Simulated assay, not measured.
Amino acid sequence: MTRRKIQIKKIDNTTARQVTFSKRRRGLFKKAQELSTLCDAEIALVVFSATGKLFEYTSSSVQQVIERHGLLSSNFDKLNQPSLDLQLESSTSAALSKEIAENTHELRKLMGEELQELNMKELQELEKLLGSGLKRVRDAKGEIVLKEITSLKWKGSLLMQENKQLKQMANQQIQTLELELEQVQSSEPIGDFIHSDPSQDHDSSGTSLKLGLAFPNGI
């Protein structure tokens, strides 16, 4: 025999309602116990009857489960509500995005783009601004060129001084070499430069030979 489904609504009969409450409560607690055992879940059930009587079931401690529930609920609320830091970061990000967009628009106007929406006064102000900027660029360029010219003049002066010093050193070396050469020439003996006439030496030797040969013939 199949069980007849009952309509889920409040039971008007007090006795029947109390009997149903007892049966369903025990079944509910039994299912909670099975769930805790099978799945190692931490469960706490708190039930008040129609007469105000308390019934409870817990796998560990009702107070511990309630405190854990309160802690998680508090953290969940904090996660759902953006913190003040996040709000400030969001506000700062929006302001920076707006500033970037404005600066980008101004830069495009300085580059000669998106000028159609400007009136005559705005164009004149832009022209004046560009003129002032161009003057500052030229002044900065002139300062850089002047610095480079000054640096080149200073380097040229150093090179001239080094060249002058090298010439002086070369002249000193030349003078030293000339003095040494003069000293060498003056120290040589005078006799080395005086030589007898070879023809006279030949004649004299010939005469002596003749005299030597004639002397024995006379004897």
Rank of each mutant, 00 (worst) to 15 (best):
K5N: 13
Q7N: 09
Q7W: 06
K9C: 01
I11Q: 11
T14L: 11
A16G: 02
R17P: 00
Q18D: 10
F21A: 03
S22K: 08
K23R: 10
R25C: 03
R26I: 04
L28P: 03
L28N: 08
F29N: 06
F29C: 05
F29W: 06
K31G: 03
A32Q: 02
Q33R: 04
Q33K: 12
Q33I: 00
E34H: 08
L35I: 02
S36C: 03
C39K: 03
A41Y: 14
E42T: 04
I43V: 06
A44K: 00
L45C: 14
L45S: 06
A50E: 09
T51Q: 10
K53W: 00
F55Q: 00
E56C: 02
Y57H: 08
S61L: 06
E67H: 08
E67M: 05
R68Q: 11
G70S: 07
L72P: 09
S73H: 14
S74F: 15
N75K: 14
D77S: 13
L79Y: 14
N80P: 03
Q81E: 15
P82L: 15
P82R: 13
P82E: 11
L84K: 13
L86A: 13
Q87G: 10
Q87H: 06
L88A: 05
S90Q: 14
S90I: 06
T92A: 15
A94E: 11
A95W: 12
L96P: 01
A101S: 15
N103I: 06
H105K: 15
L107C: 07
R108S: 06
M111S: 09
E114P: 01
E114S: 08
L118K: 00
L118P: 02
N119R: 01
K121T: 00
Q124L: 03
E125P: 05
K128H: 04
G131M: 07
G131N: 12
L134M: 05
K135Y: 11
V137P: 05
D139S: 06
D139A: 07
K141S: 13
E143R: 15
V145D: 15
L146E: 15
K147N: 13
K147C: 04
K147A: 12
I149E: 15
I149V: 13
K153C: 08
K155P: 00
S157T: 07
L158H: 03
L159K: 12
Q161K: 14
N163D: 04
Q165S: 09
Q165L: 09
Q165T: 02
Q165Y: 10
K167F: 01
Q168N: 10
Q172G: 03
Q173N: 09
Q173Y: 06
Q175E: 14
Q175I: 02
L179P: 05
E180Y: 07
Q183A: 07
S187F: 07
E188N: 09
E188S: 14
P189G: 01
I190E: 12
I190V: 11
G191I: 03
I194C: 10
H195V: 11
H195R: 13
S196T: 01
P198Y: 00
P198N: 02
Q200I: 05
Q200D: 11
Q200A: 13
D201H: 09
D201M: 12
H202I: 05
D203W: 08
S205M: 07
G206Q: 03
S208D: 06
L209F: 07
L211S: 11
L211P: 01
L211A: 10
G212P: 00
L213D: 09
A214F: 08
A214I: 03
F215L: 07
G218V: 03
G218P: 04
